[in-house]
Simulated scan of single mutants.
Amino acid sequence: MPKTSRLFSRISKGQTRWLGAALRNETTGGILLLVAAIAALAWANVDYDSYSTLKEFKFGPAELHLDLSLGKWAADGLLAIFFFVAGIELKHELVLGSLKDKAVAAVPIAAALGGMIVPATIFAFFNAGQPTASGWGIPMATDIAFALAVLAVAGRSLPLELRAFLLTLAVVDDLGAILVIAIFYTAKLNFLALAVAVGGLFIFGMLQKKRVTGWYFYLPLAAIIWAALHESGIHATIAGVAMGMLMNLKQTDGVLHVVHPISAGFAVPVFAFFSAGVSVAGMSIGDVFESPVALGVVLGLVVGKPLGVVGTAYLMARFTRASLSKELSWWDVATLGSLAGVGFTVSLLINELAFGGTEADAMGTLAVLLASTIAAIFATIALQFRKRAYSGV
C-alpha cells in the first residue's frame, strides 16, 4: 500500500533548532520593519517634501551608472542582502528541510503556487486592458518577517510545525517572486554585463566548493557580481539569491549568524522606510474603492492569498497521498492562509518596478500597506480562536 505523507508532520530536532533561530531572526526583523514603515508614513504625511528630498538624494560613481538615489540603493542594494538570506534558506529547505522529500515538498510548493496564481489572477481581472495591468505581480508575495511578527505576538500557542510550514511557504513564495522579477520585470539585457555576472557567480561557486573562507575574497567578488547584474538590466537583487543558493551548507550557519541580523535589522527596515512613505493627502476611501490597482492588490492579498494557499493544500490532501496531521485542524491551515496575505517587502519592490514614476505608484504602495494591515488583523483574530482551541478554553 502506498505510503501516506503527512502535511505539517512533526519535524526533527535538528530542524527544530534551525527553524527556531530563523523564526527568531525573522520575527525581530518584522517588528523593526513595522516601526520603519510607520515612521515613513508619519514623516511623509507631515512633511512629504523633506521625505522625498532624502529619498531622492543621489550618490555613487556615475561612470559605472551607479549614481543612485537612497531609495534606489535600498531597493537594489540592501535588498540583495535580504535575497541572499532567502537564497540560503531556500537551499537549506531543498537539501535538508521539508523540500528534501518530494512527496512532502509537493504540498508547500503547490500551496505557494496557488497563493501566487490566485492573487495575480484577481489583480489581472480588475486591471485587464489597462496600463496598470503590469502590476499583476504585486499581490503574489508573502512577507515572512511581517507574517512571523504577527504570529510571534498573537500565535505563540500554535505548533512549531505550522510555523515551519509558513517559513517554507514563504521561501518558495520568494523564489516565485524572484523568477517573476527576473523574467517579467526586466526591460532590456546587456549580455556582456550578464556574462561578467555569470562568470563571477561561477568563481563564487567554485570557491564555495573548495570551502575557501575569508570575507576579503567574497566581498569584492559579491560587489562585482552585483554591479554587473545591475548593469545587465536584471534586477540586482537576483545576485543575492544566486549567491545564497551557491553557498556551501556547512558554512551557512556562520554566515547567517553575521548576515541575517544585518538583513532583518537594517536592510529590510531601511528599504521599508524608503518604500512605505506615501502621502495620503487628498485621498479618500472612495479613491481606493474606485482604483483598479487598489482593488486588485487588496483583494488579491486579503482574499486571493488565503484562497490560493488553503484551497491548493486541501486539493493536495484530497486527491494525493498527502494528509493533514492528526494533531492539527484545517482551521489552523485557514489561519495560516490569512497570514500569507500579509505582503510587504517584495510586494513594494514589484510595485516600484511596475509603476515607479507613475501615478499608480502611490496607490499601489497604499494598497499594499492597507492589504497587509487588514490581513494582519484578520490573522490576529483567527489566531486568538486557535489559541483558545489549543489551551482548551
Rank of each mutant, 00 (worst) to 15 (best):
H260A: 15
V255G: 05
V303T: 00
G233K: 05
F266H: 01
V302P: 08
P306S: 07
S263Q: 09
G244V: 03
S279E: 14
A267V: 02
F274T: 07
V270R: 03
H257V: 06
A239C: 07
A264D: 10
I285F: 14
G296T: 04
L246S: 03
G286W: 00
K305D: 00
G308P: 04
V255P: 02
A294E: 06
F273Q: 06
H257K: 15
A264Q: 09
G296F: 03
W226V: 00
V302N: 00
F289A: 10
G254M: 01
D287E: 07
G233D: 10
L301E: 13
L301M: 14
L249H: 12
W226T: 01
L301G: 09
M247D: 09
Q251I: 01
V280A: 13
S284H: 12
N248Y: 10
G254F: 03
M247H: 09
P261D: 11
L301Y: 06
I285N: 01
P261W: 13
V280N: 14
N248P: 06
F289W: 14
H230I: 01
L299W: 13
S279P: 09
G277F: 14
L246M: 08
F274Y: 13
G240T: 01
M243R: 08
S279I: 06
V288F: 10
S291E: 07
S279N: 15
G277Q: 12
E290H: 14
F289G: 13
M245Y: 07
V259E: 00
T252R: 01
L307G: 06
L229R: 00
F289D: 03
A236F: 01
L299H: 13
F266L: 14
D287M: 11
V297A: 10
V241I: 14
A281W: 13
E290M: 14
E231K: 15
V241M: 12
P261Y: 11
S275F: 02
M283N: 14
Q251T: 00
G286P: 04
V241F: 05
S275C: 08
G244K: 09
M247S: 05
E231Q: 15
K305Y: 00
N248G: 02
F274W: 05
S279V: 12
W226Q: 04
G277L: 14
P269W: 00
V298E: 12
F274D: 00
G296L: 06
V258G: 12
F289P: 02
L307M: 14
A242C: 11
D253Y: 11
G304E: 04
M283C: 13
E290W: 08
L249W: 09
V297N: 10
L301C: 12
F266R: 05
V298G: 10
H257A: 15
A272F: 07
I262P: 07
I238Y: 10
M247K: 09
H257T: 07
K305C: 00
V298C: 11
G300V: 08
I285P: 01
A228W: 05
I285A: 10
L299S: 11
G277D: 11
F273C: 05
V297F: 07
S291F: 11
A281P: 00
A242E: 01
Q251K: 10
H235T: 07
G308T: 04
G233M: 09
I285R: 07
S291R: 04
